[in-house]
């Protein structure tokens, strides 16, 4: 997902007997579905976990602009170019809300950005894959934004108020993004044989990484169980992945595309699609920095940050000058 393998810093799920009185009171509020707000007391582990989770989510929005930016200058019609620009702009906006949500937890945007650039804070594995043809842009909307929605709709009900409220707004925009992706692919699948081949090639490359976005099975993970207890993770990775597969298979059929999984089949008994084994070695390699584009993505962000340093410094210096002049004018008056 946009946040994967979020470390809660816990070795075991906290149990009521060993919790401090404050932590027990906090857990009771969570259990009663009371939203936690920035000014409220909260356990340090809850705060730190949320910071990690929201930072990863924010970075995913910002790094996620890069694979799309790779094609925005080559969009094949003016309408598609306008749609893609608007979509990428939405993502910058999502990054902005989420960085603000992190700030409510006491971590500045500069600190969050520096954590990304230093490689300390992760972003979703999916954005380390390249966009090689125009159909990749539609496929990202359809699969990647589709997977993100699957995870983020439950997060609209998560326990931390600012994060939950940001999710409500983000989900509305994500569903538009998913629809534009599907619409782009429809045009290509109904187009020339070359266009259809591009769409199939894109699905072949993005299918498995999209399933990996949800993260490895986590039914026995301490971190996931603790996050679930805090209500900042509402469904398990496998539950979300299954929902995604069930939703997506009929859409691929409608497009006339073949999902690259020979084991994919409907299981009438379970009422779900069965799917083949995911290559978790690939996932962990990408998370560890060895995906096709990890180096380029971080380099691009670092270069943008470094090249923009003089602009940000100037803006701060100018604001200080204006404030000093205002003070001097008041004193003179």
């Amino acid at each position: 997902m946009y946040a994967q393998l979020v470390d809660t810093g816990q070795k075991a799920v906290q149990d009521d007997a060993t919790m401090s009185a404050e932590d027990r009171a906090f857990q009771q509020r969570i259990d009663a579905d009371v939203k936690i707000e920035p000014q409220d007391a909260m356990p340090e582990a809850y705060r730190r976990t949320l910071v990690r989770q929201i930072q990863q989510h924010a970075h995913s929005e910002i790094v996620g602009m890069l694979p799309e930016g790779n094609w925005v200058t080559r969009a094949p019609s003016l309408k598609r170019k306008a749609i893609l620009m608007a979509k990428i702009q939405d993502e910058a906006g999502h990054g902005l809300y989420l960085y603000s949500a992190v700030e409510t937890l006491g971590v500045t945007r500069d600190e969050t950005t520096e954590a990304l650039l230093a490689g300390k804070s992760k972003y979703s594995s999916i954005f380390n894959y390249p966009t090689l043809n125009w159909a990749d842009i539609g496929t990202i909307g359809w699969l990647v934004d589709g997977a993100a929605i699957m995870n983020q709709i439950p997060l609209c009900r998560c326990s931390y108020g600012p994060y939950a409220r940001a999710m409500v707004r983000i989900c509305k925009e994500e569903s538009f993004h998913q629809r534009q992706g599907f619409d782009l692919l429809m045009a290509m699948c109904r187009g020339t044989p070359e266009q259809k081949a591009m769409a199939q090639d894109a699905l072949d490359r993005w299918w498995w990484p999209s399933l990996m976005m949800f993260g490895p099975p986590d039914a026995s993970s301490v971190h996931s169980a603790q996050s679930a207890k805090w209500k900042i993770k509402l469904l398990s990775n496998d539950e979300l992945r299954q929902r995604f597969v069930d939703q997506t298979v009929p859409q691929a059929e409608y497009l006339g595309l073949v999902i690259p999984d020979p084991d994919l089949c409907w299981n009438a008994e379970r009422g779900h699609y069965d799917y083949g084994a995911i290559d978790w070695d690939e996932f962990f390699a990408v998370i560890a920095g060895n995906g096709p584009c990890n180096r380029e993505r971080l380099e691009t962000r670092r270069k943008a940050w470094d090249d923009g340093a003089w602009v940000r410094e100037a803006a701060v210096a100018h604001a200080a000058k204006v404030a000093a002049r205002d003070r001097a004018a008041k004193e003179a008056a």
């Binding site: 910002i62 602009m65 925005v72 200058t73 306008a82 702009q89 923009g308 602009v311």
Partner: peptide
Amino acid sequence: LCEWIGKGPVLEEELASTNVGL
């Protein structure tokens, strides 16, 4: 302006510059 996407000096400018481009 599209060439700047993802590479701007500050997030607010990513939004503003893309807005102008749109």
